[in-house]
Design a protein around this nucleic acid. Sequence first.
RNA 1: GCCGACGUAGCUCAAUGGAAGAGCAGCUGAUUUGUAAUCAGCAGGUUGCGGGUUCGAGUCCCACCGUCGGCUCCA
Length: 635
Amino acid sequence: MSIKVKLENGREAEYPQGTTCMDLYRNKVTENKNLLAVLVDGKECDLNRPLTDHSEVTFVDFDSPKGADIYRHSASHVMAHAVKRLYPTAKLGIGPAIENGFYYDIDFEEPISADDLPAIEKEMKKIIKERKPIQRREMSREEAEKLFKEKNETYKLELLADLPEDAVISCYEQDDFIDLCAGPHLSHTGLIKAFKLTGLAGAYWRGSEKNPMLQRIYGTAFPSKERLQEHLLMIEEAKKRDHRKLGRELDLFSLHEEGPGFPFLHNNGMIVWQELTDFWRVEHRRAGYEEIKTPLILNRTLWEQSGHWDHYQDNMYFTEIDELDYAVKPMNCPGAMLVYKSKMHSYRDLPRRIAEMGIVHRHELSGTLHGLMRVRSFTQDDAHIFMLPDQIEDEVAGIIELMDLFYSVFGFDYRIELSTRPEKAMGAVELWDQAERLLEKVLVDRGIEYKINEGDGAFYGPKIDFHLEDCLGRNWQCGTIQLDFQMPEKFDLTYIGEDGAKHRPVVIHRVVYGSMERLMALLIEHYSGAFPAWLAPVQVAVLPVTDRSHEYAVKISEELKNEGFRVEADLRSEKVGYKIREAQVKKVPYMLVVGDREVENNQVAVRHRHEGDLGAETLTDFIVKLKKEIAEKII
RNA sequence: GCCGACGUAGCUCAAUGGAAGAGCAGCUGAUUUGUAAUCAGCAGGUUGCGGGUUCGAGUCCCACCGUCGGCUCCA
C-alpha cells in the first residue's frame, strides 16, 4: 500500500507505507544538509520513524524553531548517558532543552562538584565519537515499569505513573543507556558537534521545596565549535553590562552588608531616578491620575482587614508602637483604600485613578536577592483605579496603552503574561473566572500576544504581567495590571449610583515601571550604562586642552548649567586624550573640547561618546540640538 | 529558605601551611598637552566576622554574615 506525502515545498509524492523520512532525505527531496528531525503533520518526529499514513512532512534543522531544542535534548541524553557510565548509581530526574541549552536533574549518591564536570564532558565526547544510534522504543506501561524498576530509576517510575492512561509510552535508547522520553531525538550521538557543560546547581525535584533537592547540570550545544564559541563570547560580553558592575563603576548605587536587599542610591543614581519620576508624573497627570502618599507603617487591624495578615504575613516586617502591633507596608493598596473611603463617591466621580510612588518592604528569602532586580525594599509606581464594573475594559486598555508609551520611550521589548488563580486565592471561584475572562478579552480584542501563566495570580485577583529581559536573558516582571474584586468587599467601598443606592466599585491595582529599583537595573543593562541624554547623570563634559582655555571652559559650563544641562568641566592638568578617555568610560553623551582655536572662534568642538569627533560649532547651535535630543528623549 | 561556589587595598586580581603583593583608582609634585591612559614619588590591609588545628593560618577545619550561580518565591 502506498501513502501520499506532502513536502514543505508543496510537492506531493507517493511512497510505500513504512517509508521513513530518512528514506525521503536519501531520495533528495530537500536541499537541507543539516537535518535533525521532521515535523509530521506538525508533530515532531525522528527521521527514522516509518510513515504510516498520508502525511505532511516538514524538515527540521538546528536553525528552525524546534530544531535547536531537539538537538540539545539529545545532548542532555548524552550527558545523562555519560553520568550513568561514571556514576552507575545516580538516579535520573528530567533533562529537557531550555533556551540556549539544556539541563539534566540527577540524584547522585554522593553529591558531585563542579570539578567533576570535565570528566563528564570527556565521557560525553567518547559517546559522541562512538556514534551510537539513538533508537525509539515504544512499550507497554508494565514493560516500562519493569524496566525502570530494575534500573532503580525511582524518579522515572514517578513520571511514568503520572502519564495519562492513554499515553504512548516511549523510551529512547543509545548503547546500554535507556531513558523514558517522548522524543524526538537525533539519529545518532555523533551528530552533536560542539557542547559545553556550563553549570551545576541544586534544583528541587519537580520544582517543589517539599521534595528532595537534585543536582542540576546545565549545558549548551551547537552544531559547530564556532557557534559555541560565539555563544560563550556573547555571554562574556553580556556580563560586562551587568547592572551590579556598572552601578559601581558609574557610581549609581551601592549595596552593603549592613542592609542586605536595601540598596543605597548615590547622586548619579538619584539623577536617573528623578528623571524617571518626572517623566512618570507628566504622563500620569496627562492620563488623568491623581497622586497621593500614604504611611510606611500602619496598624495591624488594617492588615487584618485587607487580608495581608492571613495571606502575606511571611513576607512582612512588624513593629510595635505604644504596645500596639503595626506592620511596615508590603503593598500600597490598603492605604489607597483608606483614601478612597475618606469621602463619599458618586458614580459621576468614577473612574478615580489614584497613583502613589509607594515604598514597600517585603521579606524576601535571602537566596533570592539580586542587585537592584530583587530587593527587600523598593518603590512601586503604584496606582489604584476605582471604577464602575462597566469601565473595566476601557481602563485596562488605557493602562496597556500607557505601559506601551513608557516602554517604547525606553526602547524595551516586552512580553505579556496572563496570570490566573493561585492556590492560596481569596474569594469565590466564579468571581475569579469572570475576572480572568475579562482580562483575556481585552488582550484578545486588541490582538495582543500573551502567554497564560497558570496559578500565578496575586491572592486577590488575576493579573496581566509585563516582562522584560536582563543582559543575560533572564526575565523580570515589571508592569502588572491586577483586577481586584476582594479589596472593595473587605473595605466596604461604595459609590452612589444613578439610582441613588450604594454600589460596590471594582479596583484595579497597576504598576508601569513595577519597581523603580528593578527598572533602573533593567535600564542600566539595556543601555550598557550609556544612558540617553535625558537620563544621563552628566550630559556634557567640558574638556579644556590647556590651562589657557580654563576661563572659557568655565564660562561655557556656566552657560550650559544656566540652560539646565548637567555639566562637568575637567580642569585638571591632563592631556585631552586622558580627559576624553575618562569621560568615555563614564559614558558621558557629549564632550566639548575647547582649546585655543575654539576660544578664538567662540566655538566648541563636539565629541559624541559613540560617534566620535563631530567638529566645531557655536555653543548656541549645540544647545539647540541637545535640548531637542533631551526633550524628545532620543535613545 | 534550599544546593553549590566564592569573600585579600576603593576596583580587578597575585601570594607550596613559613616576611601580605601588583595594576588601575587616590594623594603630592613635575608637565601645558588637540579627540580613549604623560612621568616620578607617596600613601593605602587586624586577608568578611568568630572560634579551632598547628611551632606557625590569607591558605586547613567548624559556625556565622555577605555575595555570586541556580531552585523555590516574586515587582
